[in-house]
Amino acid sequence: MSSLNLEEIRRNINRRQQINKIFAILGLLVIFVAILTLLGLILEMVIDGHSRISPDFFTSFPSRKPEKAGILAAWVGTSLVMVVTAVAAVPLGVAAAIYLEEYARKNLLADLIEINVTNLAGVPSIVYGLLALGLFVYQFNLGESILTAGLTLALLILPVVIVTTREALRAIPNNLREAAYALGASKWQMIWDHILPYSFGSILTGAIVGLSRAIGETAPIITIGALTFIAFLPDSPLREEFPYISFAWLQAPFTVMPIQMFNWVSRPNAEFHINAAAAGTVLIGMTLMMNGIAIYLRYLFRKDIKW
């Protein structure tokens, strides 16, 4: 190869590498803008609110005096609602995804369901609130309760759980399915012994991403009639005597973190805005904690699985 030729090749490579670099820099820039904006927002809130965050803040009910007011009812409410949401949405969503992915015939009906599920993920949350008000509150008489709120949010995140679970199932290579079938496994054995364990980490991540969305939802909870000022806790789920657990809390009135925030922000007294910032900080902390758990669990379940 002549030296002239080599020079030309290098110029050519240079040109192409430059385009490559331009994109890399552009991408980095975009990411920085997005992350910095987010960090800025969070930081501002933390700076505003951190002074109010103390043990008392977590153990006090709301009060007319800003510095005495706390988020006890709100975080307990949020936690209990999340439990209901998770218990309702995860098994339902995973089961639906398994059916759609592994059992349903690929026909027009399946396509219709698929389009519907995807679209449901984009329906404004207030619409779910209205649906829940009509269905759970008026039709089933579940009241303006933790149960109603949990089920409402479960409906809201069901599409997310279904879609992420389907993707997790689809990611399992076909040769593992065939290996199981070739040994005489039934479809259910194949799913239960292989598909579910191998995709467990991803399914869990999807569920937690869904719950992270639910934890911040305000509109549908207000629609079904959550209280904004509440100075008592629901019944404890744990009992001293047999059977040690109780489900009375499901029927209790409640409030949740975002509503508490909303309530404080809308007061004229600026002192309450500090409370709102503090509650927001706690809420973000809760979300981060859930995502952290998701990442850890995914690591835990995937470190032994590769293909």
């Binding site: 290579p173 040769n175 593992l176 065939e178 290996a179 199981a180 079938y181 070739a182 040994l183 005489g184 496994a185 039934s186 054995q189 012994d193 292989h194 191998y198 032994d304 699985i305 590769k306 293909w307």
Partner: peptide
């Protein structure tokens, strides 16, 4: 498939232990 076994072109062990891989055909039964 319980009477006729198959070995595939690309090795496709389950992401499980060696023991569980071999035992699976029996566990299925």
């Amino acid at each position: 498939r319980m009477r006729i076994s198959m070995v595939f072109q690309k090795p496709n062990p389950f992401p499980k232990s060696i023991y569980e891989n071999v035992a699976y055909g029996l566990r299925v039964r």
